[in-house]
């Protein structure tokens, strides 16, 4: 993202350059318009939902009503717990597996790796019926663990970390072993620190994925104590609520806010993480 990078055709001519700038800005404004609109509806009384007068009175009422109309605090807690649990387990399992693939030669390695990659194409999202039956047998329906379990062995994470671990110089590995580090010690002291940017990338992608995930949690949960924000929001915004648009927009903004704020603060990291995660 460095400014020095390339001479793009955009600055080959200043007149076209200016046209580019105008078009880019128009598209950007169009792109944030839906969000700006949601914000407008949320901070104004209902009669101004589609009347755009700059002098319209501001109100925080929609947010307070939304907050009391549904157990959003509980939903947020559920989502945070779920996302944290998934990420923690993912990081541990994915690190071990990636290490095995990157630095061990064992019988059946290629076949196992191919089997892992299958998940990139057939995600748990698609196998909803069978996975539900499995969870039922395990007694994990309507639990946070049940939402997370199918995603915890992440093929994507294994793939990403294996690539990174492979670039670690063998000499570092051997040096650590000579110093007396065991297998896990070497992994922890040499490999994990060197792969930190990849961990950040994987973490951000995983958190945003599971924060936003909807269909699977909808299927698995059926009580307030397990429902994540997305499912809670859907129940809250269901048509039975009537057409109180300010209220629904307030609820929608509240449930997206943590991630959106995190994104605005750590914009560069977000974009670079998604970039890193995408280059295979």
């Amino acid at each position: 993202m460095s400014a020095a990078a390339t001479t793009s055709p955009a600055d080959l001519g200043t007149r076209t350059g200016r046209l580019d700038a105008i078009a880019a800005w128009l598209l950007a404004l169009l792109w944030i318009a839906p969000l700006v609109y949601a914000l407008w509806a949320a901070i104004h009384p209902a009669q101004f939902a589609v009347r755009f007068e700059l002098t319209a009175p501001l109100t925080f009422d929609n947010f307070t009503r939304a907050w009391t109309a549904a157990p959003f605090a509980r939903y947020i807690l559920n989502t945070v717990l779920m996302v944290t649990m998934i990420l923690a387990v993912q990081l541990a399992l994915v690190t071990l597996a990636a290490f095995a693939f990157a630095r061990y030669s064992f019988a059946g390695r290629e076949a196992m790796f191919a089997l892992v990659l299958v998940q990139l194409m057939i995600m748990p999202d698609v196998l909803i019926v069978e996975n539900y039956l499995t969870l039922e047998r395990l007694g994990l329906i309507d639990s946070l663990l049940g939402i997370g379990l199918p995603y915890m062995g992440s093929a994507f994470g294994i793939f990403l970390l294996r690539q990174t671990f492979k670039t670690v110089p063998r000499e570092l590995d051997e040096a650590a072993r000579i110093e007396g580090c065991g297998l896990l010690g070497t992994l922890w002291r040499v490999y994990v620190p060197l792969a930190r940017p990849v961990y950040v990338a994987f973490g951000l992608v995983s958190v945003s994925y599971h924060w936003n995930n909807f269909l699977w949690p909808l299927i698995v949960t059926n009580s307030v104590t397990t429902r994540p924000l997305t499912v809670g929001l859907q129940i809250f915004a269901a048509p039975e609520q009537g057409l109180d648009w300010g209220l629904i927009c307030a609820g929608t903004l509240m449930s997206s806010a943590p991630l959106v704020i995190a994104f605005l603060v750590f914009q560069r990291q977000f974009v670079q993480s998604f970039m890193r995660a995408g280059i295979r």
């Binding site: 969000l35 909807f214 997305t230 991630l259 959106v260 974009v271 998604f274």
Partner: peptide, 13 residues
């Protein structure tokens, strides 16, 4: 930020 923002939002929102 403007282009990327919709990616961060939940589809349900």
């Amino acid at each position: 930020a403007a282009y990327f923002m919709p990616t961060v939002l939940p589809m349900i929102a």
